[in-house]
Design a protein around this nucleic acid. Structure first.
Lengths: 181, 181
DNA sequence: GGGTGCAGTGCAACTAGTTGCATAGGTCAC
DNA sequence: GTGACCTATGCAACTAGTTGCACTGCACCC
């Protein structure tokens, strides 16, 4: 499982509370790992037990108190161990593909509409990523270390969304053509 | 959840036992939905309770008896309903991306090796898919209905693997270049 | 006759992830 | 002053998926 490790990477960049982490997961880290606040709070608790992160409460005024977590030596050791251990590619799960495959057993028009909806969702996400790229990484060839790695992740997100938009377009064209015949 | 629906699509094409389904999931359906035999047996049982599939035992000689499942009217109704209902794109989960993002906190060389390993895995899968394409769909423009949908799914798999291979190559080149400096 | 391997089904225990709800302090607008 | 919204944490119950094991029957090879 990589949620722990995604949290370690994120906390290593900057210590923070569960709430802050949840927001980071909604944004940058969410390109390649999704997590709800529930999952994060529970996992943080487990990670404290494992000695991978430490926690101290911070009293705030004007807003509720929070618990700030930071990575310990044990956490860094675990991260190093994990980075060097092999893993398998995630198993694919694609609702939309199941729908396309089943289109001839139901309402093909509805599946086409669903494809078009997903096409637009992916195009929207792609635009967001491309805007990040333009703004945050204007000169990719100059990057190194952590900044390079952040850039590469973004590139992965861009490629994935591009591929999905193109696939939706291909499928839409073929299925619409098939319907006309 | 789409495992039920993936099973319905598969059983609608051809009735079969849990064992057979598990094999189909290892092959064709596995392009876009992974499932173990355990999951399949459990889900089939639930689907019988829901009235989506019916089950009858088949005595075999030379091998153990089996239970053959087939889709009922209720199952087809459920499938139609689901095909017309909107769904969200799956949340992404990518171990390898987490590793790349964390590469500067551990052994960057190990992450590079892991990238190279995954690159080869994806290239291998891509070859398998391309061979299917060549063999099973020599003339895509002539396809319609179910055959077209099967082809489009395969195209999705091909695009996804191609994108991953290219991304691995991009990341490998950049990280190796960064190491040399 | 003993090992390997395929076909076939399943339980039990576990880990991971989702959903709904609760609570509590504070700001800001109408 | 009250309703909407943001920060902040968490429990409980559920659904989904994984892992390890167990059993049966038969075939085929050495």
């Amino acid at each position: 499982m990589a949620l722990e490790h995604a949290i370690l990477v994120s906390l290593d960049e900057r210590s923070g509370s569960g709430y802050e982490l949840a927001q980071r997961f909604e944004k940058s880290i969410g390109f390649f790992w999704a997590a709800t606040h529930q999952q994060i709070y529970r996992t943080l608790k487990r990670m404290v037990d494992l000695g991978w992160v430490s926690c101290h409460e911070v009293t705030q005024d004007g807003r509720p108190d929070k618990k700030v977590y930071e990575v310990t030596g044990g956490g860094r050791a675990e991260l190093t161990r994990w980075l060097s251990s092999p893993g398998e590619p995630e198993t694919v799960r694609n609702d939309l593909a199941v729908k396309v495959r089943g289109a001839s057993l139901g309402d093909a028009g509805a599946v086409i509409a669903e494809l078009a909806r997903h096409r637009d969702l992916h195009a929207e996400r792609l635009d967001v990523y491309l805007a990040f790229e333009k703004k945050d990484f204007p000169d990719p060839s100059a990057l190194s270390g952590r900044r390079l790695h952040q850039y590469l992740i973004l590139r992965g997100g861009i490629r994935a969304e591009q591929g999905l938009v193109e696939w939706c377009d291909e499928a839409l064209a073929a299925m619409r053509e098939d319907q006309r015949r």
